[in-house]
Structures are given as structure tokens and as C-alpha cells.
Write a protein that binds this DNA or RNA. Structure first.
Lengths: 120, 120
DNA sequence: TTGACGCATTCCCATATAGGCATATGATGG
DNA sequence: CCATCATATGCCTATATGGGAATGCGTCAA
């Protein structure tokens, strides 16, 4: 069954590098499709397609402005993602601690029994 | 070109619901494949495949323990994701504010000029 | 060495894209 | 209504992926 439809999952929506870039660009304010496409070096249809996905998961809003359609960031949908990943925060800290401890151990071992070639 | 290979992108790795579940389970400590598969209601090959992806992006480590292979969480790779998403934190706060303002405006407008059918 | 157990791999299939291109749809100005 | 600019869609292809089933492989015990 391939993967869950991107149109129904924020995690999938931001799994696409170009979509992440679009979101980052939109932090600077609302923009028309063509401008986004140009700035990100993609074709207009591509931009429209990515924007559609982002719109369907609710990460962007659209507003008609004359002939143009201005896309605006709506980052509320990113909050759950942030919280989910944040649930691992203490683990990557622990990982760093463990790494640190490991390094300390190595240092000690080296001082206690220095062998030739230990210091390259 | 479909999507970027999951094996080289953490965002893609965690875009899979089952892989997210595996990571969440591993917060409880290292576990053998079969146990993960059983707890998550998936087949052993499936678990192995997902674990492989997670291993290739560095989100889990493996350790041989007799006939078993114990998988352990290595959440360091999630830090960049957390930071990327965190870069939008002020925007979802703003969004909430805007929404709140919008609701206030609606309330005021309703009080000032109540029309028939305004309240369904 | 053989057998059993735990896990990783491989093969095949159905599906969901992303990209490129052509074209339909919408809105604006004459 | 027509021409034009700005977007959205439809169509087609190549590719990546998840699921299922069968099988290969390494480890341990007898």
C-alpha cells in the first residue's frame, strides 16, 4: 500500500524537501505561486501541486488577490509534529550524555595505560 | 522521481506511522524485533524492514544479543527535525492570536448589526 | 552436525507520488 | 466577448515503497 496519502498527513506533507522550502519561504509573508516557483527554481505546475498538498493538510491558506492567488503560512498544523518530536528531547540529550561519558572513559583509559600509537 | 529515498532522510523516515510507533516503543528501552512486531501488530519481516530504514537514517542502533538483535533508540537524529519545526513556533502562536482576533471581530460584528439567520 | 529459533532479505504486486507537458479555468482589461 | 496573465488540473511515465509470502543466514543447544 505504498505510503499514507500525503494529503491527509502533516508528517508526509513536510517529508518533501521542496514543500519544506515553500513553508520556509512563506515565513516571510504571503506570496503568489509564480514567485514561489521562481524563487525555488521549480515550474509553476509543480509549485501549484505542492501548494495544493500543503493546503489540504492545512499548512497554508490561500487568498485571491486579483488574478493572483496569495499563499500564506498557517503553521498551526506543525504544532503536533513539534510536540511529537519533542517527546524525544530527553533521549537525544541522554544520547549526548552517553557520548560524553564515552569520551571521558576513553580519555581516562588513555591516561592510565598509555600505549604507543594511542595518540595519533 | 517519486519521493526522496527514506533511507537518506529523517523526515521521510518518520513520515511512516508505523515507524513512529516503533520509535515511541523504543523509548521504553531496547527490544528484540519479534517483540516489537508483536506489540505493534505487524509481521516480523515488516518490523525488520522498518527497523532497517530507521537504522539507515541513524534513529536506532542494533546490538546482537545471542540469537536476538536488540534495537535501541538513538534520538539524536530527531534534533534537527525538532529544530526545523521549532522554527515555525512563533508562527503558530501568531496564528492562534489571529484566529482569536478573528473570533472577536465576528462576535462584535454580530452584536453591532444582528441579521436574521446570523445564528443558525 | 543437525534442528530450532530469531531475524534479514528477496521477489512480486498494487499504489502513491513527483516531474514534465499540455491544457482547462479564472479573473482582468479593452 | 476576446486576449492575456496567473493558476490549477489532467495525463503519462519512472520510481519508491509498503505488504505478503517464502527463503536465506547466523546463533545456540544437544
Amino acid at each position: 500500500m505504498a505510503r499514507a496519502a500525503t494529503t491527509s498527513d502533516t508528517f508526509n506533507a513536510i517529508a518533501e524537501p521542496q514543500r519544506r522550502e515553500i513553508l520556509m519561504l512563506l515565513r516571510g509573508g504571503e506570496r503568489p505561486v509564480t514567485e514561489l516557483a521562481r524563487d525555488l527554481g521549480m515550474t509553476q505546475p509543480q509549485a501549484s501541486k505542492h501548494l495544493r498538498v500543503l493546503r489540504e493538510v492545512g499548512l497554508v491558506r490561500v487568498r485571491g488577490a486579483g488574478k493572483q492567488r496569495l499563499y500564506d503560512l498557517d503553521a498551526r498544523g506543525l504544532r503536533p509534529v513539534h510536540e511529537w518530536v519533542g517527546g524525544f528531547e530527553r533521549f537525544w540529550s541522554e544520547s549526548f550524555d552517553r557520548l560524553d561519558e564515552y569520551v571521558q572513559e576513553l580519555k581516562q583509559a588513555r591516561q592510565e595505560e598509555p600505549h604507543d600509537g594511542d595518540d595519533q
